[in-house]
């Protein structure tokens, strides 16, 4: 078992594919999360906005539909529809599924982050918004400079969780012909149909990544807490 793994991994340079797969997994998760944070923050702001006027009410409904749509369907289905249905329908061909995966992960994560962010914004003392408005700052400026930074600090652990979820969910991108970490490890077992060692190593790699992310989030939290003392 081990000999075969070593042969595939080292002698035949399977590690090159694994490193490429790792890079793609991390790329999709990081870029997806960044897009998700941008979209999620915008949606969260729309959803907590006062609803006296028509426009915020309409936007709120649209954002509500968006969130339900992306939370109500599995990521793999969104990926399949995006790559195999939507793009061909629009007559768009792409050289690689990676950008498609990044966008789908971003859109999907945006829906989740918006709910996380909404909770974060609601957890910030309303007096912060009032004080910003009282010195003449606009709603948007107060939101971006005062409320959202405090909200982000409150939700950092949850955002870290979202990143971990994304890292693990990247294994579905093999459906659109992208070789990620999961697929690259699986390939090590394909020539012999023996997956014991590749799967164990795959699990170990995911675990190490998740532990690193958790440690990183904790370090960031401590740093942010310290900076406000």
């Amino acid at each position: 078992m081990w000999q075969e793994f070593v042969k595939q991994f080292i002698t035949r340079k399977g590690y090159v594919n694994v490193l490429n797969g790792l890079a793609i997994t991390v790329e999709i998760a990081i870029l997806g999360l960044l897009i998700g944070i941008v979209i999620g923050t915008l949606i969260a702001i729309v959803r907590v906005m006062p609803k006296y006027k028509l426009l915020p009410r309409v936007l709120d409904k649209i954002c509500g539909c968006y969130v339900e749509l992306f939370r109500g369907t599995p990521m793999v289905v969104q990926l399949l529809i995006g790559y195999w249905v939507l793009l061909p329908a629009l007559d768009v061909q792409v050289n690689s599924g990676v950008p498609v995966a990044v966008i789908v992960f971003g859109l999907n994560s945006g829906a989740y982050v918006s709910e996380i962010m909404r909770g974060g914004i609601n957890s910030v003392d309303p007096g912060q918004m009032e004080a910003g408005r009282a010195v003449g700052l606009s709603y948007a400026t107060t939101m971006m400079k005062i409320v959202v930074p405090q909200a982000v600090k409150n939700i950092l652990p949850t955002l870290g969780n979202e990143f971990i979820v994304l890292i693990k969910e990247t294994s579905v991108v093999s459906f659109i012909a992208v070789t990620d970490l999961y697929k690259s490890f699986k390939q090590l077992g394909d020539p012999t149909y023996n997956y014991t060692v590749p799967y164990l190593m795959l699990a170990l790699t995911y675990l190490v990544m998740v532990l690193l992310i958790s440690a990183g989030v904790r370090a960031l939290e401590t740093k942010l807490k310290k900076s406000e003392k």
């Binding site: 004080a131 910003g132 005062i146 930074p149 405090q150």
Partner: peptide
Amino acid sequence: GMVFQQFNLFNNL
């Protein structure tokens, strides 16, 4: 200008 009972200084600044 406005001054609040709870001060409402911006905590992140």
